[in-house]
Write a protein that binds this DNA or RNA. Structure first.
Lengths: 119, 119
DNA sequence: ACTATATATTCCTATATGGGCATATGTCAA
DNA sequence: TTGACATATGCCCATATAGGAATATATAGT
């Protein structure tokens, strides 16, 4: 089996750096495709394709305005990702504590040694 | 250009569902490969390959113990992902408020209408 | 040295890209 | 209708899978 489609879920869609840039850019306010092309210095077809992927997984929404199409980030769709990563927060906090404790233990040990030498 | 390597960064590595499962499983405590095989019902070579990817991007750490290798999740490496997604939090909060405000406006309008009918 | 156990790597195949380029589609304006 | 503008799609190619099967590597025990 090959790798899962980029349109299979938000995780796969945001794996691509350009798509993450597009999401950041479109989070502030809706923009036509041409603006993205200029702002991110990408080829227009490339932008359209990335937008297609992002739309398929619900990460952006679009509305037509004349001959332009205005896209905006649907932040809500990024939430599951945030929550998944958040599950690990208590673990990295714990790991940091362990590092800190080890450092403190080392300091205490060094101090004891110094005291001995002084006496 | 093809899709970026799964080992290019954490975003690409966690795009694969099985790898996310492995990370969750190894977050609780270190485990030998065989345990993962049993717990997640995967082929052993498949697990080894996933672990290889996860190791390359620093998402798991390994230490040898006799003929076994004990893996554990390095939660710290998931943090950048959490922070990236967190940048969008204010946007989805805002969007939710808009939805709520629209709903409230609608309610108010309905109430006004009802009052009119009553009078 | 030999055997059993635990993991890792290699080879194969089907599939899905992402970029570049050309082209199609859709919409406004005269 | 014709022309210009904005966006989307199709095609080609090089690349990177993920899974399955077979095999290689490493280590413990006898």
């Amino acid at each position: 089996m090959a790798r899962a489609a980029t349109t299979s879920d938000a995780f796969n869609a945001v794996a691509e750096p350009r798509r993450r840039e597009i999401l950041s850019y479109l989070a502030l306010r809706e923009r036509p495709v041409g603006d993205i092309v200029i702002a991110l210095q990408l080829e227009q077809p490339s932008v359209s394709k990335h937008l297609r992927v992002l739309r398929d997984v619900g990460l952006v929404r679009m509305r037509r305005e004349g001959r332009r199409k205005l896209y905006r980030t649907n932040a809500e769709a990024i939430r599951p990702l945030h929550e998944w990563a958040g599950e690990f927060e208590r673990f990295w906090r714990h790991q940091l504590n362990q590092v800190k404790e080890r450092a403190e233990a080392k300091m205490a040990e060094a101090n004891l040694k110094k005291k001995k030498e002084d006496s």
